[in-house]
Structure formats: C-alpha cells, structure tokens
Design a protein around this nucleic acid. Sequence first.
DNA 1: ATTGGTGCAAAGCTTTTGCAGTAGC
DNA 2: GCTACTGCAAAAGCTTTGCACCAAT
Lengths: 138, 138
Amino acid sequence: MESIKKRNTKQKATLLEYLKSNSNKHLTAEQISRDLSSLNVSQATVYRLLNSLAKDGKIRKYHIEEKQPMCFQYIEDSCIAPSHYHFICNTCEKVFHFEDKEVEKLKDSLAKSQDFFIDTDKTVFYGTCKKCMQGGKK
Amino acid sequence: MESIKKRNTKQKATLLEYLKSNSNKHLTAEQISRDLSSLNVSQATVYRLLNSLAKDGKIRKYHIEEKQPMCFQYIEDSCIAPSHYHFICNTCEKVFHFEDKEVEKLKDSLAKSQDFFIDTDKTVFYGTCKKCMQGGKK
DNA sequence: ATTGGTGCAAAGCTTTTGCAGTAGC
DNA sequence: GCTACTGCAAAAGCTTTGCACCAAT
C-alpha cells in the first residue's frame, strides 16, 4: 500500500526544523506560514505539508477551544511511551504537562472493556486549571 | 453585568425544541440550519442563537471529528454529569461513544494531585479501535 | 526523464456581520 | 414606542485545489 514514494524537499526540511524548535508551543497554520514565508515556503505548501505530516503521525493536529484555526505541534521522535500528558485550560488556554498513573489505568481499562487503544500522545485533556477556577474570570 | 434583557422569540423556541428532541445526536450548524429552514428560521439566526445559547451554557459546542464544522448538543436541564465520552479512531476516523468508570477516577485524581478540573465533555480520546487494530492500518 | 512537490491565485466552506425591517415587552 | 431580534446578502476567515512550472530521484 505504501507505494507512493515521498521526496525530501527543502520546504519540508525547513518546516520540520521549525516545528522541532518550537515543539513546546502550539502553532496555528497561519502563524507557521507567516514565519516561514521569509524562508521561501508558501502558504499552500505549509498547509499541504502540515496535513501530510499529521497523517503520518509526525505532528499533532488539534483544535484549541473556541478558536477556529487548527493548531499543530511536533511529536518528539524519542517519546514512544510518553511519560507526560497534555492538558489545556479552556479559560486561559495555557498548556500544562502532567503525569498521572490513573491515565495508564484508564488506558488499560478501555483496552479491555471497549477494545479502544488510546494514544495518550494525541489525546489532549480539556478543562479548567486551578488558577482560572479561583480567579473565575470570563 | 447581565443588564441586557433577552426576548423569547419564535425562532429561539423552535431551535430549542429541535435541539431537545435531538439531544442524543451531534448536530452541525449546517444540519440544524437545513432542518429549520422550513420552519422559518434563517441560517444567520441559527448561528447567532447557537452561539448565544452556548455562551449561556444551554448547549454544548465542540469539535468532534477532525473535520471543520462545530457540533452542538443540548444539555439536559437535569443531567449535569453527562454519562458518555468520545473516542475517535485515528485510522478509520469513526467516532465512538463509551462509558467507563475509570474516567471519573482519573478526573478525581487530577483534581486532587494536579488541580486540573477536566471537562470530559470537551476532551476527546484518540487512538485506534479494535477493528483497525486487527485489520492493519491503511 | 519521470513525476511528486511547489507557488500562485482562485475557489470552497463555514461562520460572522451590516443594515433595514420586524416583533417582543 | 423602544430596541433586541431576524433575514438577507455580502464579507470575512481558514483551508483546499487547479494548473503550470520546478526539482528530487
């Protein structure tokens, strides 16, 4: 099935390098495109590459609450069994990293009872962080 | 702050009735608009009402598939704690609904250890379903 | 030399908005 | 009678796509 041979282009290399060095951020396609336009990567190519990489599991593609645009983030090569998970606060939109053994339990439970194999690297938890819960802003 | 007095219009009543009788489904704005067009509710009004109701917490607004359109669902007056969660298979992209007590445990655990209050309505689990796991990926 | 990738601009889709008319209170 | 709400259509915002050219293998 994997008959289509992919080529290594400068644009792809540029994008990957950019994503790797910004792997701690959540970037929109528009943001990425803006930053790469000076490096000779067109907007259309950015979109095409992002979709392609997401399909290959090289980057993560997701929505951050309410806002329309998709966000992308590079997935580290090394972490096959990620030791941490992601949580995004709906209010302040900050991204938190956490570790919790209950996540693994949930994973096992679902594998048994539902036959779902959760990819915790792609799953992002949404909710409210302590600060926003207390501050109680909009 | 709540100084703006809201009016009860026929359009709003029509939409709410429609959403209530379809509270088990995940509806896109486009779908809703299509169904209500014959009942004299315009598309613009549907969008305005959906946003308004979501802001008031009467309905739930979220992205389910990777695809663009937002989905909406009526929030039952009685049930504050929804009983099911969502899981999307990365391979076949189907959406699954499931119930699992471990999710609640995880929620409690994180509330205690991390001070994160997970909104399981908005959190979508990603992974691979049984069928795709067996069938081998595309 | 093949043929996948790229750039450009146009098209596509979903959602929002300006404005004038309408209807709720 | 106010003025929030609605309908219409136009506009906006994000993403995809057709086509001709370019470049990786």
